[in-house]
């Protein structure tokens, strides 16, 4: 389904952000990537859809090797990967509807895009998804008039309306309050299950990541140091990923909430 082989990224500055990472995802699961700031989480996700050019390694999405694609082929591959951003990255001056429909840009012509002539199915789907995430009636609002949580919902729909085969999610909740963060994570999880696609979610909040993930990957200094189910994440694991710290509280907090 999805496979990353020996991904390496060396930035022009000389920084080795990824030192050979391999990940296989063979079912629709939520994969949380844990790791301290600067571990290479964003770089990993961006190398997959080539917003950042990997130095070496391979990425397969349904047998298509992505790192070697060029031009039109690359655009086609990108529209099969929905990305959700930390800073939402909505087009601030456009309306909610235009932002949602921008997820279809890989499918429509330049003139259709310019004159906002999107196919009826896309518009219907946009209305459906807006209602699904609780934004019914917001379609003509400008994106810059929305709150953080509302923006991220729009960001989620923009990714989903691409009909992606995988979701790439980079710290979706770090600008949000704890309550909204949980709602957003739940929404991503529910929608990914609904569409039956995997999601790779970078997250720095250990408790939140553990709670919503089916699988945890620990990334430290560009290397994968852990890969397993959330239940297997122990204090030792966290120490290995993040370094020495009192993790007992963090872990227990998750268990408390589960009861």
């Amino acid at each position: 389904m999805f496979s990353v082989k020996n991904l390496v990224k060396k930035y022009p500055t000389g920084q080795m952000a990824l030192k050979g990472c391999s990940v296989d995802i063979d079912k629709a699961q939520i994969v949380s990537i844990f790791g301290p700031s600067g571990a290479g989480k964003s770089t990993f996700i961006r190398c997959i859809n080539r917003l950042v050019e990997p130095t070496s390694g391979e990425v397969y999405l349904d047998d298509v090797e992505i790192t070697s694609l060029k031009g039109r082929e690359l655009h086609k591959a990108r529209r099969q990967m929905g990305m959700i951003f930390q800073e939402y990255n909505l087009i601030e001056r456009l309306t909610v509807m235009e932002n949602v429909l921008s997820g279809r840009l890989g499918y429509v012509s330049f003139l259709q895009a310019m004159f906002r002539r999107f196919p009826k199915e896309s518009i219907d789907e946009a209305f459906y998804l807006l209602e699904r995430v609780g934004l019914a009636g917001y379609h003509n609002q400008r994106a810059d008039a929305l709150s953080g949580g509302q923006r991220q919902r729009v960001g989620i729909i923009r990714a989903l309306i691409q009909h992606p085969k995988i979701l790439l999610v980079d710290e979706p909740t770090s600008g949000l309050d704890p309550k909204t963060a949980m709602i957003i994570m739940q929404l991503i999880k529910d929608l990914a299950k609904e569409k039956d696609i995997p999601a790779i979610v970078n997250i720095h909040d250990v408790a939140l990541g553990q709670r919503y993930a089916d699988r945890i990957i620990g990334l430290t200094e560009g290397k994968i140091v852990f890969d397993g189910p959330p239940a297997e994440v122990s204090e030792e694991t966290l120490t290995m990923i993040y370094g020495e710290e009192d993790w007992s509280k963090t872990i227990r907090k998750v268990e408390d909430e589960e009861e």
Binding site: L51, R72, K76, Q80, M83, L94, E98, S102, F110, Q162
Partner: peptide, 17 residues
């Protein structure tokens, strides 16, 4: 970047991004 990530080509990126 967000518009590029949707698979839009260069012209559409200029148009929306």
């Amino acid at each position: 970047e967000a518009v590029r990530a949707t698979g839009a080509n260069w012209f559409k990126v200029q148009l929306y991004g």
